[in-house]
């Protein structure tokens, strides 16, 4: 499983990098970015899903 942020949808609400700072960071404008290639392990999947469930813009995608 991999997590990604759609940069066209992200508005920099900042929820992802607050909830899961190990998975998400931010760029110089404050928009969310995935750290590394976004590959999720069993223990990080739930965290990524929590970030996804809190993104007001629905900009986070978790895919096979």
């Amino acid at each position: 499983m991999k997590v990604r942020i759609d940069p066209d949808i992200c508005q920099g609400q900042g929820r992802c990098f607050s909830i899961a700072p190990g998975l998400f960071g931010f760029d110089e404008l404050g928009n969310g970015v995935v750290i590394g290639d976004g590959t999720l392990q069993a223990d990080t999947l739930a965290l990524a899903q929590l970030a996804q469930a809190n993104c007001p813009e629905h900009a986070i995608f978790i895919e096979e």
Binding site: Q13, G14, S18, G30, L50, N54, C55, P56
Partner: peptide, 23 residues
């Protein structure tokens, strides 16, 4: 509350610029 997709800072392109500071 763990799942809280609130819109206090607005939605879309006008998302509050100062949201990080406000928090």
């Amino acid at each position: 509350r763990e799942v809280n997709r609130h819109a206090a800072f607005g939605l879309g392109i006008h998302r509050c610029v100062g949201s990080n500071l406000a928090r």
